[in-house]
Amino acid sequence: MERLPSWLRQHLAALRALLVLTVVTGVIYPLVTTGIAQALFNGKADGSPVEKDGKVAGSLIIGQSFTDKDGNPVKTYFQSRPSAAGAGYDLTSTSASNLGPEDVVDVLPVPGAKDDAGNPDTGKQSLLTQVCARSKAIGEFEGVSGARPYCTADGIGAVLKVFPAVGTPTRAVSVNQACPATPFVAVYEGVKVECGKPGEDYSAGRTVPVRGGATAVVPPDAVTASGSGLDPDISVAYADLQAPRIARERHLPLGTVQTLIQEHTTGRALGFMGEPAVNVLELNLALDGKRG
C-alpha cells in the first residue's frame, strides 16, 4: 500500500490533535469542573441568587447598582461602591480600571474636536479626578463634606505642571482645570498659576500634586472600584455614612438603621484577613422589611 505524502500525514495529525483537544478542553473539562462546582459549591456556583416576592432580586456574591431608570442613586437604599466592569457590575466585562496612583493628569476635551468615530471629544479623566468627582457627589448626596486631599473644591484633581522640570519654576499650570477656570491656587513658589489650555502639551513639565488641608470624610471604598468590579460589599464606614440619609428617607429611627448595619456586618476572614464588610443587597432587603 502506497504511503500518504508527508504533508498530508502532517495535516491529518494536526486535525486529529484538534479534534482530541476540542473534546477534552471544550467538552470534558467544562463538564467536570461544572459538576465539581455544583457538588461542592452549589449555591455560589449558581451565583448565590436571592429571591424577593418570588423573583430574583440579585446575588449575594455579585454586586449591583441601586439606581433609578435615569441612573441616579435611589435615596431610600444603601449604595454600592463604584464599578469599572462595563457600565457597572457587568458580568461579561468584569475588570478593574487598570489606573494607578500615578494617574493624576487629565486629558482635557478640545472644544469642537471629534474622535475617530466622529463623536465630540470628551477627553479623559485621570483616576485622581474620578475619585475627586465621586467624593464631591457623594458628599452632596449624603449631606457631608466631600472634600479630600489632592482635590479641588470643584471635584477635580489638584495637580500642577511646573516648568522647567528641574530648577527654579518660571511657569505653573493647573492642568486639570480647563480655561477659563480659576486655578485652585493663585501662586506656586512665586509664579502665577495658569489654567489649563485644552490640546496643549504639558508633558515636559514636572507633575506636582497639591495635597491641600482637607480631611476626607467619604471612605475610600465609596470612591474607588474593586479589582473585579463586582464586589457586593461595602465597608462599615461607608454604610454608617449612609445611615442618616436612609433613616431620614424611610422615616426610621437612626438607631434602627444602625442596628441593621451591625446585623449584616461580616467579620474578617479567618478572624484576621481583610476588614469587616456589609453586604449591600442583604442590607437593602432587610430595610424593605422595616416599616417607617
Score class of each variant (00 low, 15 high):
Ile234Leu: 10
Val144Asp: 01
Ala117Phe: 15
Leu127Phe: 11
Leu19Thr: 09
Pro164Val: 04
Ser95Val: 03
Val105Phe: 03
Arg81Val: 11
Val191Glu: 00
Gly63Thr: 07
Val24Asn: 09
Pro209Phe: 03
Thr76Phe: 07
Gln262Asn: 11
Glu275Pro: 07
Ala84Trp: 04
Pro111Arg: 00
Gln242Trp: 04
Val105Glu: 04
Leu160Val: 08
Pro5Asn: 14
Leu18Phe: 14
Val223Cys: 07
Gly71Pro: 04
Arg148Met: 14
Val104Gln: 08
Thr22Gly: 15
Asn42Trp: 12
Ala117Ser: 15
Asp103Met: 02
Val187Tyr: 09
Leu283Asp: 10
Ala39Met: 10
Thr182His: 06
Phe163Ser: 07
Val107Phe: 05
Lys124Val: 11
Asp70Ile: 01
Leu241Ala: 04
Val131Gly: 05
Leu31Ile: 14
Arg206Trp: 05
Leu285Lys: 03
Leu15Ile: 03
Ala57Tyr: 02
Tyr150His: 13
Asp53Leu: 14
Gly196Tyr: 08
Asp103Ala: 07
Asn279Arg: 01
Ala133Ile: 01
Tyr188Val: 10
Leu260Ala: 06
Leu260Met: 06
Ala37Lys: 05
Glu189Cys: 06
Pro111Tyr: 01
Asp201Ile: 09
Ala269Thr: 15
Cys151Lys: 00
Pro220Ile: 07
Gly71Asp: 04
Ser80Leu: 08
Ala45Arg: 01
Ala13Lys: 08
Val191Arg: 03
Lys136Met: 12
Ala87Glu: 14
Asn42Tyr: 12
Thr122Val: 15
Ser174Pro: 01
Leu127Tyr: 06
Gly54Phe: 08
Leu230Met: 15
Val27Asp: 01
Pro180Asn: 00
Ile156Arg: 13
Asp115Glu: 06
Asp70Ala: 15
Gly274Thr: 00
Thr25Cys: 13
Ala85Ile: 03
Glu249Cys: 01
Lys124Cys: 05
Val159Asn: 07
Thr92Cys: 02
Val131Arg: 13
Thr182Tyr: 06
Pro101Asp: 14
Asn176Gly: 07
Thr224Glu: 13
Asp90Glu: 12
Arg268Cys: 10
Ala204Leu: 08
Ala247Trp: 00
Gly267Gln: 14
Gly112Thr: 11
Asp121Val: 08
Gly227Trp: 07
Leu21Cys: 12
Glu194Val: 12
Lys44Ile: 14
Ser135Arg: 00
Pro253Val: 12
Asp154Ser: 14
Gly167Trp: 05
Asp90Thr: 05
Ala85Trp: 03
Ala14Glu: 12
Asp154Leu: 05
Asp106Ala: 01
Phe78Asn: 02
Thr152His: 02
Gly100Lys: 08
Ser97Asn: 08
Ala87Arg: 13
Ala45Thr: 10
Leu160His: 09
Trp7Ile: 09
Tyr202His: 06
Lys192Ile: 11
Pro120Leu: 13
Asp231Cys: 01
Gly139Thr: 09
Glu142Arg: 06
Val20Gln: 10
Ile28Asn: 10
Leu160Ser: 10
Cys132Arg: 06
Leu241Thr: 00
Tyr150Thr: 03
